[in-house]
Amino acid sequence: MFLFMVFALIAVVAALGVIVSRKPVYSALFLLLNFATLAALYIMLQAQFLAAVQVIVYAGAIVVLFLFVVMLIGGGELGQGDKVTGGQGDKVSAASAPLRLRSELGWPRIAALALAVLLLAGVGYGLITGQLHAGQGTAAAFGQGSVEAIGAALYTDYLLPFEMTSVLLLVGMVGAVVLARSEG
């Protein structure tokens, strides 16, 4: 329970960091923290394979793709596109004023460092006390999310959807290449 609370706190604060950071780079890195925390939660949920996929696909591929795009279109210079613009009523502009002040204090770095240390400490604590090891909880849940169980289900009951995802990925790849070609 304690471990869950720690991870939940990190996930929520990281999510908050994504939506209030002024710079998209900070948002992307907070997003990475959020995804890593969710991977830890997946392990607590006996979904070891999902945790691995979460780290590889989300934290590895998707966040890196985000970072590439942020860097390509000039991450730090997005100020004018980034403002919580007017035309939203006074409530929003009033809310953005303290937000702007705090960003000048460099709070994302401090918050991110604290959260990352907390995440590391939580994972370390969970590993040492065995709370993150497989087979915690009920005996019926043992091995439920293992690679073996997922693989058996994917290649028998879910074979057609699994094969269709390959077509989806191919279409996505072709679409991305066509859209991002420089000659348009």
Partner: peptide
Amino acid sequence: MVVAAAEVAVGLAIVMT
């Protein structure tokens, strides 16, 4: 996750365009 990966690839390409 597969859908999200495809969506991010296409979406970021649209953003670039």
